[in-house]
Design a protein around this nucleic acid. Structure first.
Lengths: 310, 310
DNA sequence: CGCTCAATATAACTTTGGGTTATGAAGCTT
DNA sequence: AAGCTTCATAACCCAAAGTTATATTGAGCG
């Protein structure tokens, strides 16, 4: 005996409202409609659901019990509707975000923390990766949003790129580092220090190598490699090593007075940090929320950086 | 955005079964049917519920969330179906039973106790009353089953009467009562004792009065009145009073060795105890369960009484 | 007791959509 | 590349939900 859940909903509304007419109004239907639905339900059930000839309509035992189930169905339906609405407005859902490890840990994670406070029902699934793999993940639709350093000209039509910060890498060291005290630092000065190297396939590593190549320095001493940002920072602050980091990461850490940047820019000046999404697909509302939020936060961050270090 | 609960059920089945085809089988529908239902739901929701072009069909975030609501709806529906089945088989529901107070307390309540053990989901709403009022309650359908002493010939066509015991009232006293020791008790012997009188409008009281009228005894000393069975028994066992009780009640209490019956029958030999129901209405399955149970129990009780006291 | 009013039931009809079978298209598998 | 499985589409039928209009029936009241 399979019952139509809509019938149970109608029954629940009638019992709750206390009458056919009121129940119909509650459901936004006409009175004859619900009347006949009840008749159909009673036919299927084979037993009366309302006491006959009682004007303040009173349900039978069974009618009351079924109405309770109807209430459960109604509430599940309402909950489902709410989920849909939230999804469509981008107030709920899940967004898969990925980016280069150092930048994600150093900058994006702070932004995401703020985002979570504002949109608690959007789940962020974060992962790490480098441009080529992340772009293919976007194409395969296993990723919604990548945050990468790119040359805008290199971005194919398949993707949409929105710049959030100029790509500006710097050489970072601890605050009390000997070089940090100098007024002017020449490239030659840095040759004597050992390096914390970013992963070999990372853009940062390429930038570092290119820069050192530029001054004819083929070999450089590597004292530490393979760590995440927090490990790198710990090693950096506990030694005189140098490393290359996005300036924005160093900027964010200046508050803790542990890191500083040498006044030497390295890397490709045409490459900028930005959000990459798939162009074809209409991105989900929640992804757009994340995207907008990041763009907005980085506008203010960009201004901060510019005013602080012109 | 009101969603069709049936769509959510279908979604839940698909997600649970892991595919359209399996989901359709689970629901006992054809695959194209559920396929189109999903399409309709996706149209309404405005967002995809399944990841496209993935063969082991995988729901989206929203799809999964809605499927959970669908599961709630499914379980509510299954529960409702079970309620209906139980009702139809008379395994659940409520039955309104009434009868004369002394007989209900002394005999029927024991039977109801056994009934409850066998049918825990049937609720018994018991009340007390005398024939005229209970018959009119049956007519008004505010009562399902009355247990009353009646003359079968007096029962109108409106009702159906099923005899469960011969109506046999006796004079009851405590076990150690002076009269109880005598081999033969004449009516004259009882005149000196005081009486516990049943309520004035009860059949028992009428039987008592008629009997005493028959031996020319218009006045009799009443020492206690208005109590329920347990009060009457307490007074009876603590004094030499007499009272009139249905023999079945005394029989049930003989086990406790507190009451006994004088070998004098009083009352109307044409009146019998039986179950009265409304004839017109098809009685509910659960009422029939109660009725059948009572009839069956009283068949064995009747045999017991006959064999014990010929 | 009958009148009136309000609530429910019925009627007649339209439209939505769920059910079917048959068939086409698209992924995995081998 | 062939074949099998699975999902999507098409074309159709019919159950039933929705509508408006109207009849019926209780409940309350003078």
């Amino acid at each position: 005996m399979k019952l139509d859940p809509r019938h149970l909903e109608i029954l629940a509304a009638i019992v709750e409202a206390g009458g056919l007419t009121e129940g119909a109004a509650l459901l936004g239907k006409s009175q004859p409609s619900v009347s006949r639905s009840v008749s159909l339900l009673e036919d299927r059930v084979g037993e009366p659901l309302f006491l006959p000839t009682r004007r303040p309509l009173q349900p039978t035992e069974l009618g009351l019990a079924l109405a309770q189930e109807g209430q459960r169905i109604l509430s599940a339906g309402r909950h489902a509707s709410r989920l849909v609405d939230e999804h469509r407005q981008g107030l709920a859902g899940a967004v898969r975000v990925a980016g280069t490890p150092i930048f994600m840990d150093g900058v994006i994670s702070n932004v995401i923390a703020e985002f979570q406070a504002e949109y608690p029902n959007i789940r962020i699934d974060q992962s790490y990766g480098y441009p080529t793999e992340l772009l293919s993940q976007l194409s395969a639709e296993t990723l919604d949003l990548a945050i990468l350093p790119m040359r805008p000209a290199d971005v194919s039509d398949e993707y949409e790129f929105r710049q959030i910060l100029p790509g500006r890498n710097v050489i970072a060291c601890r605050v009390g580092h000997p070089l940090a005290r100098k007024k002017e630092v020449k490239l030659e000065d840095i040759t004597e220090y050992s390096w914390i190297a970013p992963p070999a396939n990372s853009p940062l590593f390429r930038d570092l190598r290119n820069t050192l190549d530029g001054i004819g320095m083929r070999d450089f001493k590597i004292s530490f490699t393979g760590g995440s940002l927090s490990a790198v920072v710990n090693v950096l602050t506990g030694s005189d090593s140098l490393t290359v980091l996005p300036f924005s990461v160093v900027f964010m850490m200046q508050r803790q007075k542990t890191l500083t940047a040498l006044p030497i820019k390295i890397g490709d000046p045409d490459r900028h940090l930005g959000c990459v999404t798939l162009n074809a697909r209409s991105t989900s509302a929640s992804s757009n929320r994340v995207l907008d939020f990041i763009k907005q936060k980085f506008e203010t961050l960009d201004r901060l950086i510019c005013s602080a270090s012109g």
